[in-house]
Design a protein around this nucleic acid. Structure first.
Lengths: 245, 245
DNA sequence: CTGGTTCTTTGCGCTGGCGCAAATACTGAA
DNA sequence: TTCAGTATTTGCGCCAGCGCAAAGAACCAG
């Protein structure tokens, strides 16, 4: 791939990419080159996984391109989606702290490419560039705050609001403006949304149908377009229904 | 307090205490002394708080004595308990990563004493002893895993199992053996348990009553004794009910 | 175009657990 | 001991959302 480009050009591009990654923010050019030199890449087709729950946690990944779903299955076989991650985000961060195994499965939901560093390499990099460790701490902190707020939602809020919030979050991270509204840029089934919000696909389907009737969204097979974000926010915030504009 | 002891003896004791704290594990004697020298203490009566949700996040705490409840309230006023922490555990760890405000309230549920370090002091300590940063990363990772598993429970399991698990976790962290079984070493109301497991005090009360009838526990006002831990595990694991021994 | 696969929709019945409300039971202070 | 305040228990009605089931609809491969 990137046929015709010199190795040097490729490295430049990689550094460019890494400079936009949270985990490496604030690093000097040379530090980034150091990180880039140690990076390896892995491509996955839609549906294929970068690692599965229970694998030895040996690598830390950063998404170069595409989108990844991180999910867990319980002992009883229930599945839940931990998060969706897109370009520049890291996943499989277990090696950053002591974990032995990945507690979740990471799979590509569109053809994706990820950069990765083995645990030992990452340890060495963090040692050489402590800033990475500090960034990692910060990212983990943010993640913790996010999970806590999702927990709080799950504990105290009705399904409809949870779905609305999840959708709004996804729009924020992966929304693309189209003529009629904003669409989620990756295939997302009712089942996915249910696993993300702790409910069933039936309930999600009913909710989306009702929103569609109210003109809030338009949806098809694994495809959702938000027509009236304002209205969806009303649902998420539990204001009385109001067409907005 | 510790009247009659010399300053040196007090420092010794403090170092002793800190050596058992996860955040400072693996530090040399001199490093611990460094940490101890920078520590300050704060005492709180039952019910009083170390900080409240929304306060500027300026301090990192470690419990020297007593027990602390960390809880959040939602915009709608629902309360949830994030965790209970006991001796040697840290709380208010927001300053470790970039957070501006505490996202939760930490209050003493029994008379408690905490050590604390201001954010700037902690930054300096981490700089001088990088091991602290690594430990912090590890602890945050564990916390993240714990919250995720609680999230998973909430998303996929029935109330009774969640309550059973919460109780077993508390026993592990704060169980004291008494003649009839194991008791939770701090006052815990039905309401508390409900907020910890994402349900209502009514439901918790009904569940505890049924367990009491089955001889699994014995409980009173803010007091719970597990008579048959094995049986409680069966409930948590959803095995068919079985008296065990 | 066809047949198979995967997603989605919808009806229907049921129930776990919430919410309200009222009756007790504890506990600590005076 | 009594009283006030706080915790707990329990009955009752209700409904959000689950689970099942079956019928569409969209997509893909050949």
């Amino acid at each position: 791939m990137t046929k015709g480009k010199s190795v040097i050009e490729e490295k430049k591009e990689l550094v460019q990419l890494l400079s936009g990654v949270q985990l490496f923010k604030g690093l000097s050019e040379t530090a980034l080159e150091d990180v880039a030199a140690a990076a390896q890449t892995l491509d996955r087709e839609e549906g294929a996984s970068f690692f599965v729950q229970g694998d030895a946690a040996t690598r830390l990944f950063v998404i170069a391109d595409g989108r990844v779903k991180v999910s867990q299955v319980t002992a009883e076989g229930h599945q839940i989606v931990v998060r969706y991650a897109g370009g520049g985000e890291m996943f499989g961060c277990v090696p950053l702290y002591g974990g032995e195994e990945y507690p979740a499965t990471a799979s590509a939901i569109v053809p994706s490419r990820a950069l990765y560093w083995s645990r030992s390499v990452m340890d060495r990099l963090m040692e050489r560039h402590p800033r990475i460790a500090i960034n990692a701490l910060e990212l983990l902190g943010e993640e913790l705050a996010l999970v806590r707020s999702r927990y709080q939602e799950l504990a105290t809020e009705r399904v409809e609001r949870r779905v609305a919030r999840a959708l709004l979050r996804l729009v924020g991270k992966a929304g693309r403006k189209v003529e009629k509204g904003v669409m989620i840029r990756f295939p997302l089934s009712r089942q996915d949304l249910a696993e993300l919000t702790g409910t069933t696909l039936h309930t999600v389907s009913r909710i989306l149908s009702s929103w569609e009737q109210r003109g809030l969204i338009e949806s098809g097979r694994r495809r959702i377009v938000i027509l009236n974000p304002h209205g969806l926010v009303s649902v998420a915030e539990d204001l009385e229904f109001d067409d907005g504009d």
